[in-house]
Design a binder for these strands. Structure first.
Lengths: 239, 239
DNA sequence: GACCATCTTGACCATTTGGTCAAGATAGCA
DNA sequence: TGCTATCTTGACCAAATGGTCAAGATGGTC
């Protein structure tokens, strides 16, 4: 329920010119040898392309990214990239699909039974870890939103809205039970997202203001600590 | 000291092919008639182009924006745009210069003598107002940061860093004086920026999650109230 | 080994787009 | 009324880029 699109089906959607039609890629025993089987080739190439694409889309934006650069970064010729992903748009969608799944996962800790302080702290940690370890993913998503979310509007108003509605109810429950101070649950989430993702999306600004070349693990630790402190105190919880 | 570049000098930097060299545009008496003088023409056209460019850069990004679209939106032919701004890059820089000035202004309320709660609340209001009234500006800036700030890296590590160093000292003073609870002043600012700008930069996400078509004034009010509440409580201040 | 589906790649093309040019229009001034 | 500097614009160009093609290579299977 959390994973939007499974890897296999995502790849399926973006298949190239002559991919296995029908019920190819059966679940049967994998080829005995561990050398490049057809299946492995496709998997590896798709993965390599997606990784390269995420990086290039993150740093250049959709329009600024060129399929040539993505192909080079993936270590393959451009026509080969277009074999796996017919169009730049399709490749972009595939990259986004990966990211959306990630995005939803982080809320796992927000459940009614949890201790609010623990749950929120864990959520902040998770989002902050995501900013540290997957900055490109965060940037691609940010870029998409910045330009009006043409490709993920449906997701935002659908799966994401439902998830947040859900989690907002949990927060409201905590408020009603007097476990945290009153706050608008939706805007609480918006602030949490903003405060954590800013360290991925706008890292260069933060680094520059801190007088560093790049953000290091200690910066992220300190950031997470600060955000958690502000939020927990902001909800009148023991820090 | 707050305004980075004054309008006049900014225009100067981006002059087109054959603009008044030397000490043109003297401060002397303006042309008697209030009809289109040469000076007025330039001013109006530059302003119209900058406005159009801000909107297009905001919605399309730098690479996605075309000078043709900007020109159309400004109501002039493309070569005319290139007469005032030699290159797309120069136009982009001019748009950014405008934005950077705006950016710095908002911190005015953060001064040692102020009441922390008032000062912070006012700062949040100011940033939130900026998100509501100048969403395009915020988005252009966000986009620039997202892509590594190629055009404003100098500003970030220079004027902005100095300003924040300054304001961080004010915050530290408040902490030392026991007027607010301890917090990392830099990260406090990062959270404040993120929490307020998110309403401009990622408005479509917030609107979608709230189940609205667009964010209205009441949404911004509620957002500002929530952010202020969280932050003030987070610093153990009376809300 | 032969046949097929999948994968690879150099060469190529149509479109988009930033930017130019040169001729003409317009304001300001003596 | 000329004369100059500034402004305007249709036509045009070179480069970049998304995407295609067709021929060849490679793994899988009988």
């Amino acid at each position: 329920m959390v994973k939007m699109v499974k890897r296999a089906s995502r790849a399926e959607l973006s298949l190239g010119r002559g991919p296995a039609k029908g019920r190819a890629r059966r679940a049967g025993p994998p080829p005995a040898n561990n050398r490049a089987s057809k299946q492995t080739i496709r998997c590896e190439n798709v993965a390599r392309i997606l990784e390269a694409a995420e990086a290039v889309f993150a740093t250049k934006g959709f329009s600024g990214a060129t399929t040539a650069e993505i192909a080079t970064r993936a270590g393959i010729p451009k026509p080969n990239l277009h074999y796996y992903f017919r169009t730049k748009q399709a490749l972009y969608r595939a990259v986004l699909d990966d990211i959306l799944a990630l995005w939803l996962d982080a809320t796992a800790s927000i459940v009614a039974e949890a201790e609010p302080a623990d749950a929120l702290r864990r959520y902040i940690e998770a989002k902050m870890a995501y900013s540290r370890t997957r900055p490109f993913a965060s940037k691609v998503f940010a870029n998409e939103l910045l330009h009006g979310a043409p490709a993920v509007k449906g997701f935002l108003g659908g799966a994401m809205k439902r998830l947040v509605d859900d989690k907002a109810k949990v927060i409201e429950g905590w408020i009603t039970a007097g476990r945290i101070a009153p706050i608008d649950p939706y805007h609480l989430f918006f602030v949490l997202w903003a405060a954590t993702q800013t360290y991925a999306d706008f890292d260069c600004q933060i680094a520059a203001v801190l007088g560093k070349k790049k953000l290091g693990p200690t910066d992220f630790d300190r950031a997470g600590e600060t955000v958690a402190t502000l939020i927990l105190r902001g909800l009148r919880l023991k820090v």
